[in-house]
Design a protein around this nucleic acid. Structure first.
Lengths: 357, 357
DNA sequence: CCGATTCTTTGAATCGTTTCATTGTTACGA
DNA sequence: TCGTAACAATGAAACGATTCAAAGAATCGG
């Protein structure tokens, strides 16, 4: 009832030594069948469950990996988390999940907690400046992999997504389907992601002689901010309108779509093609299914675990920064004049453009 | 570099006994200022961090609480998780989060893991039939609180939300704003939540003599399923239309809204009032801001931790089932003829309708 | 200055598992 | 039958923190 059975209880019950019970659990081959049966039966009868604390005290480290994300509610991270958990499970580790909620204090608390738990390694999508903490951890033999952030390869491994390439992909797609007067809708360019996506788009536009790119600053990254931009667009004279709009994320794109379709003066995609970024669940079920740029979240999570495993295996401090290329998901909102309606994906096939450090 | 400092290293470095270091950490009042200073300095110089495994081996239990949810990506659970983490932090515990993803296998793995970790207690939103496992845990002194599921008070504490009351609240609101020909849109009534919400709505309708409630079966709980139902509605003759529609969740409601607003033949809320359930983030930024029923997720998470604490404190097996009442959030999609536009909340003030077991 | 009291500090024992040198057992070829 | 492998089982030591009885130091009143 109260105290749960220990390996010693099992040993007594099966009339063997504690070492033998341990061998049954960890090296079954070393134990004869007869003994093994007796021990297993005792385990079953007593309902013995290994005490992980004792185990990891002896081992010197746990079999868990810490993962700190900015926001578990964000589908991007949710997907990364799930992939990381699955990949970790394959190699016999469990993931301890922490949600910093963009709060440096919570982030720091989780690092403390994980350090006390002696996690094998840490995956983190940092909020504040944690380089000092991470350096300290590395010195103690706890490697870190940065997630969704490009790191200095001299110091850390990292997995990230090439936002410039994503921006290029989006703009290029609008150009490929015949649009020339493009517009970029995005929040403050102080956000790195927004900046990079814009830069990629500009790169694509520069490749086509008669193409132009207008920048429409949005007050944030929400549906409402998008609607604000959309409302401005519908008030313009026909000649002043863009014919292709690229939004820095899907929420903005959905807001723009709401404005344009609400008044029914402009049609998507005939008058204006629209493409977003992130490929959230809502994109496919928008009034006009939204084209978007999908980030390889599963690959991010999986690769982060793999990079961590690499660092754990070899004791040489060899770091790698793996950069993924996002992929284009074509739906109705950017259908060409001929209007093929099937959903299409193209672009990266989740292959890593890896570089060695 | 390699091995991290232990309490013994600290003791040597500060020239005191290990017990003294432990006292500095756990009972600072017992130690003189001089000694304390020396020890703290040693801790700082060596970068000592407590080894939680050793601590909990000695203590016999950890300072963590296991939490297994059906889907971390679901905003409902995300919010519950965050509240539970905060409440646990207040009492000095940490939450280990597991995402079963509606998979009984993953759920079982997490129970195993948490049992090996010797968690203090378990909060679970179960997928499969885990009563046997939970009984076993209870016998070993690991209490469980069921989350978002009403439990037999003889065996477990639980926190849940009264879906019948939510359904009543939604329908009642439509009736209160003058609608009489109501329709309920929902997936298979085999889902308990859907069933209960419908029942609550029927109860409300039965209270008003000339009111009626039509049931529109949807093929699922998605935006697309909602659009399917909406498409059927717009094809009806004007006289056959409901004037108030209650959807079993917000996704369905958004789908219905898309259909109705797309063709611009029916206006929301003038021709048809629309209300959803869950109050997801998108509700407020829909083309017509969507009225909805909000579940007190924070209270769920917080209360679950509190009930667990109760069970841990007293060793008498006294269980409680706490049932929360959801609240109505009024937005434009159900605005009355006079059309007050402000967002209003009413209904439960997050107070628990508790019953003792 | 002494004995009593309170305040500090000590260090061995303990938690449950794994490891590993040692001992005990069995089997087999010569 | 003996010597030697190969195989099984043993149990003490170690991991690092906490606890607690006991020893030691400081303080105080008389």
């Amino acid at each position: 009832m109260s105290r749960s059975a220990s390996i010693k209880d099992v040993a007594n019950h099966a009339r063997v030594a504690v070492g033998t019970v341990s061998n049954v659990l960890n090296y079954p081959d070393r134990v004869s069948q007869r003994t093994k049966d007796r021990v297993l039966q005792a385990i079953d009868e007593l309902g013995f469950v290994r005490n992980d604390a004792a185990r990891q005290l002896r081992a010197g480290h746990s079999r868990t990996i810490g993962l700190i994300v900015l926001d578990v509610g964000n589908p991007f991270f949710t997907s990364v988390v799930r992939a990381a958990e699955d990949a970790a499970a394959l190699q016999g580790s469990a993931v301890l999940l922490g949600d910093s909620g963009h709060d440096a204090g919570r982030e720091s608390n989780y690092i403390d907690l994980f350090q006390e738990q002696r996690v094998q390694g840490l995956l983190i999508s940092p909020v504040g400046d944690v380089t000092e903490r991470l350096d300290q951890l590395r010195e103690r033999g706890v490697p870190t992999v940065l997630v969704d952030r490009l790191a200095d390869e001299a110091k850390y491994s990292s997995v990230s997504v090439d936002d410039d390439a994503g921006g290029y992909l989006a703009a290029r797609h609008l150009l490929d389907t015949g649009r020339r007067r493009l517009a970029f809708v995005g929040g403050p360019t102080s956000i790195r992601q927004v900046e990079d996506r814009l830069q990629g788009a500009q790169r694509a536009v520069a490749e086509v002689p008669d193409a132009s790119l207008e920048i429409l600053d949005s007050a944030g990254q929400t549906v409402l901010a998008g609607r604000g931009v959309g409302d401005q667009l519908v008030r313009r004279a026909a000649g002043e309108l863009p014919d292709g709009v690229f939004c820095a994320n899907d929420l903005l794109a959905l807001g723009v779509m709401q404005s344009l379709t609400m008044l029914h003066t402009l049609r998507i995609p005939e008058d204006i093609a629209l493409i977003g970024y992130d490929d959230i669940d809502f994109a496919v079920s928008a009034v006009v299914p939204l084209s978007s740029i999908r980030q390889p979240t599963e690959a991010l999570g999986r690769t982060a675990i793999e990079l961590l495993a690499e660092e754990l295996d070899s004791d040489k401090p060899r770091h790698r920064a793996v950069i993924f290329t996002p992929e284009l998901v074509v739906r109705q909102s950017t259908a060409g004049p001929e209007g093929s309606s099937a959903e299409t994906r193209s672009g990266s096939s989740e292959e890593a453009a890896a570089t060695a450090g």
